[in-house]
Write a protein that binds this DNA or RNA. Structure first.
Lengths: 182, 182, 182, 182
DNA sequence: AATGAATGAGATTTCATTCAT
DNA sequence: GATGAATGAAATCTCATTCAT
């Protein structure tokens, strides 16, 4: 069994993904993690701090994905690995939304530094995508190509979620994957 | 001066756009509309009912936009009118997010009928886009082309918001607009 | 159509009988009477005043019943007319409770003069019952016999209501009626 | 000092007895129990849940009374113990009403399951009374005799309350007690 | 470190009553 | 007389956070 801190992050991640940050109560998270409510504050000084840890966890998840994609040498193949990873999560994304996009959007409205942390969920992707396009010789257009890819993926998540349509979502991702070769 | 009911919808729309539905309190809305809190309940039986009115308002806004786009006869031009309308709102979208996508996504996690109402914000767009592509002779691919367009716009909104980058947002929309001709 | 004042009393009587006084809202009464809410205050200066009018109405109803019972000359027959009247209302009493006992009990907890008015619902019965027993030569035991009768009727109402059992209720009332002859 | 949960039930019982359920506010109960209002919700998830606990408490009280009555072997004596217990509470019943009948009647108008819970206050009495009459050889008339007894007691409570007349109340109960021997 | 309990600010909602016309 | 609208006090309930042990 994971230690309490990790269990809390894991549970918070699940509950936030399912309900959104504002609708998530610490009581729910504590119960899901089988940790007494009062104890949450031993590990995290506030609800915000717990959310920050969730973001860190997701960023780490993305970095792990990128690392595994780097086993490919061709940047196009690397990007396709990432797109495939989204496709592999189609069911959950279509049911609950994108764990990166959802949270980034919701936290964006705050003036905390949680808002800034939320943006990392996108910037870490944008940066890595940019690096790949640069290796493809895109030069100064690399950043733009990266933004286009991020937009395409996130748009598919949002629309797939609204219509709960995994088939549509996958079709869109395959299309994105195909065009990466152009 | 608008009548109170309209002022409440207008204020709720603003506040929800700025804060999200969950973080919106009726006290805030009432204050923004200069209406005493208790009076809100004379016009709307619940917070949810007010949100439903906001959604209706936004759907009407979209229909108005579509009606004006229909002054063009060429479907491609019509679609470009719509894309341009998003472009024209770049500053606010980049600051607060897309008023349709944001709300649709947040409400999607509920099991109310507010969730269903939220989805209308997308389906009304998808339907109209589909009709245009059909007139272009897209046949059974019309729905898919419509979904692609919706994804592209929404993706741009989400990423534009995260990076508060109106230039990026506009670039993306112009690109979308250009490709509509292909 | 009754005039508004009477319609309000009639509706208030119905709604109070169905929901109890505390759970009755003037909005409900106004709607039931098809009278605009604001207008209620033209006819009654407060919710309490409306309830007082309802009590007056019910007291009048009882007096009418007594008057009709007085067409009989035998006091025992007179009392049996009254008991039969309760029996005739078995269905509604078993569904909603006794319109006299319910209200008397609920209002009893106040320190208004509504409490005193509520008690009239019982005292008017007690007085008339006492008068009949006195004519039967019960002498100073007349008051006690009257109280016993009132207790018996009200007990049957309360228990009939709790178990929603009209048959039980009627059996009890017939038993009471029979014993009146002893 | 009782623990808080018990204090809350005790206070709620008192306040509900004094004011009725609808007119009881949790603020009043909390103050009476010397518990901060917000803390009430740590022990009971809603006002209804607190009322349900009050009912449980009263049902338990009745069962304790029945258990002590069962120290007598003669069913008639047992029933007289119960009637005496009501008589011993004459002052409070005449001031506030019967804690079982009042609540049962008020809750009866709801469509919650609180209504059903309220009915238990009577059914637990009816069942035990029936068992005693059955031991007396009443056969299938046992249930009817039990209902008659319950009606008699409750009628006395209701009328005793309306006239705030403890002497009348006691006279009625003694009469009931005497007739149990017939 | 751990935890059940406590706290209080604030959110939604209700409603008798009053106001303006 | 009539009425739609307004008002504000108060009720129920929620929850992040803190406390006492």
């Amino acid at each position: 069994m994971l230690d309490k801190r990790d269990r809390l992050i894991r549970s918070a991640s699940r509950v936030i993904h399912a309900n959104g940050y504002a609708a998530t109560t610490l009581a729910l998270v504590a119960k899901d993690a089988a940790v007494p409510l009062g104890n949450v504050y031993y590990y995290f000084k506030s609800k915000e701090a717990l959310a920050a840890a969730v973001i860190d966890d997701r960023v780490a998840e993305l970095r792990t994905l990128f690392a595994s994609a780097e086993e490919e040498s061709d940047p196009v193949e690397r990007l396709r690995v990432v797109v495939s990873a989204f496709e592999a999560s189609a069911e959950i994304i279509v049911a609950r939304g994108c764990p990166y996009g959802n949270l980034s959007q919701e936290l964006d409205k705050r003036d905390d530094d949680l808002a800034a942390r939320g943006r990392e969920l996108f910037s870490v992707q944008l940066d890595w995508f940019t690096a790949q396009f640069r290796r493809l010789g895109a030069g100064r257009k690399a950043a733009d190509a990266a933004a286009e890819l991020l937009c395409a993926i996130q748009g598919a998540c949002l629309v797939g979620l609204a219509f709960k349509d995994a088939a549509l979502f996958k079709r869109r991702l395959r299309d994105i994957s195909r065009r990466l070769g152009d």
